[in-house]
Write a protein that binds this DNA or RNA. Sequence first.
DNA 1: ACTCCAGTACGAATGAAGTCGAACTATGCG
DNA 2: CGCATAGTTCGACTTCATTCGTACTGGAGT
Lengths: 129, 129
Amino acid sequence: MSTPSMSTPTVTGPDTPPADLPPALPEPAREDLRLEVVLGALSDPLRLTIVRKLLREREAYDHPCGWFELDRPKSSLTHHFKALREAGVLRQRQYGLERRSRVRAEDLDARFPGLLDLVAAWEPASGAG
Amino acid sequence: MSTPSMSTPTVTGPDTPPADLPPALPEPAREDLRLEVVLGALSDPLRLTIVRKLLREREAYDHPCGWFELDRPKSSLTHHFKALREAGVLRQRQYGLERRSRVRAEDLDARFPGLLDLVAAWEPASGAG
DNA sequence: ACTCCAGTACGAATGAAGTCGAACTATGCG
DNA sequence: CGCATAGTTCGACTTCATTCGTACTGGAGT
């Protein structure tokens, strides 16, 4: 990531939630989202899986890391969730012990309309065989 | 790229043009386009520049490589154009000496609606800093 | 305080992509 | 043929991402 400018732009409470929620982890502001960075973050099958799953069940507010049932070591998951957060795709909040994630759908729809629909419609391996 | 399966799926005349045109170089068929691959191909600023420029002036049919005025060595350009073609973003045809490229807009719109609009609206560096 | 648990941080190994020079191919022109 | 042009191919180098083990942090429960 080469030390992203996670510090200069707007960082803390992007939505200023109802104060019931824990603060969001540092993330790029909506106007700092870059298409090439977001696309790069989404160009990984595992991350695409994460975002799609999050999109499909966005009824529940946030989801902890274990909810995804990805059988990768924890350090790998941290890596990918961080990549998604730093690209601006996910917002993460610390709920006590667990860190829950949700897609920044409003921001992404505002900046890149239609992009999340593509992700939601994505299917991993298209059973052609 | 790791030896893409450019051989098994439909490869040659994807549109079967009016025979006035030279044949298209090998490319993945529409149904073989993969979102993560296309996103990966588009996650590079130079390639985004290429595709956007091609989209904005798609009146003319194809564009040769030098038309883009990218000051990179030829071997680099070959690399990126090939990456875009193998991802299914561009179609390339050999017109005598020059190899001209165009965006596979129909295929991409069919498979990933809205994606090209994002690319067309992209702007390189938004004067920050 | 002690322990469990969710997740981070660090660091190393691996591998893939980007960058580019140099030599090459193929077309077109005189 | 000889030369210029447009682009490819190869190989080397560098940089970056991915993967994951291990050690660590910090809240919750007893």
